[in-house]
């Protein structure tokens, strides 16, 4: 029995919602074990200038005087209506605070993704098609190297060479296109390694397939074979990898933004960590979980449409014949549980 595409969409949609809600709860639990008590730590600190009335207001808003499950329920029901709470540091609503800086991070992450893809396909094609004397094996070592160089080291080297020595951009005003390009390059290098590894593996696999041999025997050149036959099947799995690395782009943005002095979600996280501004942390982490889940959902939903070989055959093979004798349920020996054909 073949499961229908709409059924698959609904099931995946349901899973995605559950994962987002659980991620919210998980973040809340981690943050609420904070040793520092926000009431005494931030609210009652005279330097922050909260009046007793304001403190009472915030305490009753977050139900900070109630047990943790009540706070969680309160926070979760607000999250479901789209209300992200109020920052303890600036006393402003969290949603506009995030809105202000999100554009910077998303343009950084988007540019990084594009650069990573270009780099990965260039390395992948070179590692596959270049002759040995032109450094094919050297290119094959690139992904390993890129994976081993920390993002912040790349960032500092980029700063030293392109900003301090060549003066191509300035850290003071880092949100210019050139500044964004170099920050994105920094973020892209470790990420491109994972993409390149997948592309190289797929190109190697596809080029040994019979259709590739046939195409070659018809006299197609290496480049022609790549463009017309290998590129598409080799790039399909990249869709899944892109979806998985979105989280890394958002996480890596914390370090990249710090180095390049950019004002984005990452620097917001850093400020919130140092001031224990828990509502902002909760919101940013939940938001990135939402982004991750949505991107993966889209990748999963689009994949069967892109690749005709992947049809949803999950439910087809499952046989439900009860195991005989005293063999415990899930461990029915394969020979015994195979249903007789017909």
């Amino acid at each position: 029995m073949r499961s229908s595409y709409p059924g698959f969409v609904l099931r995946r949609l349901g899973q995605a919602v559950v994962v987002v809600l659980l991620a919210y709860i998980a973040t809340f639990v981690v943050i609420s074990v904070l040793p520092g008590d926000p009431v005494s730590g931030i609210l009652n600190n005279p330097e922050n200038g909260f009046s007793p009335e304001q403190v009472d207001q915030i305490v009753s808003y977050y139900k900070l005087d109630q047990p943790v499950p009540v706070q969680l329920w309160e926070s979760l029901s607000r999250f479901l209506t789209g209300d992200l709470g109020v920052s303890l540091r600036t006393n402003l609503p969290v949603a506009p605070m995030i809105g202000q800086v999100a554009a910077s991070t998303f343009s950084l992450a988007g540019a990084a993704l594009v650069i990573a893809l270009v780099l990965a396909f260039a390395v992948g094609y070179g590692a596959h098609a270049l002759p040995r004397w032109a450094g094919r094996d050297l290119l094959r070592a690139f992904p390993s190297l890129f994976l081993s160089v920390p993002n912040y080291v790349v960032g500092l080297l980029v700063l030293i060479f392109f900003s301090f020595q060549l003066h191509l951009f300035s850290v003071i005003d880092s949100e210019t296109p050139v500044g964004t390009f170099f920050a994105a390059l920094t973020l892209a290098i470790p990420v491109s390694a994972q993409l390149a590894e997948v592309i190289i593996a797929n190109l190697d696999h596809e080029s040994t397939q019979e259709y590739a041999t046939v195409a070659r025997s018809r006299g197609l050149t290496q480049a022609g074979l790549f463009v017309r036959h290998l590129l598409k099947p080799a790039s399909l799995p990249v869709v899944t990898v892109i979806a998985l690395i979105v989280g890394e782009l958002l996480g890596g943005a914390v370090l990249t933004e710090q180095i390049f002095g950019r004002n984005g979600l990452g620097s917001l996280v850093q400020q919130s960590v140092t001031t224990q501004d828990t509502p902002v942390l909760q919101a940013v982490v939940s938001l990135s979980a939402v982004v991750f889940v949505v991107v993966n959902l889209v990748a999963d939903l689009v994949y069967p449409l892109l690749d005709p070989r992947v049809r949803l055959t999950e439910t087809r093979a499952r046989a439900t014949v009860p195991a005989p004798g005293r063999v415990p349920g899930p461990f029915a020996p394969s020979g015994l549980s195979t249903p007789k054909a017909g």
């Binding site: 991620a23 074990v33 904070l34 890394e248 958002l250 890596g252 940013v284 982490v285």
Partner: peptide, 17 residues
């Protein structure tokens, strides 16, 4: 759920806790 929260961000949150 563990996979859905970006790893480095999650580590930052846990360390801050």
């Amino acid at each position: 759920v563990l996979l859905a929260i970006p790893g480095f961000l999650f580590a930052v949150i846990i360390v801050s806790a």
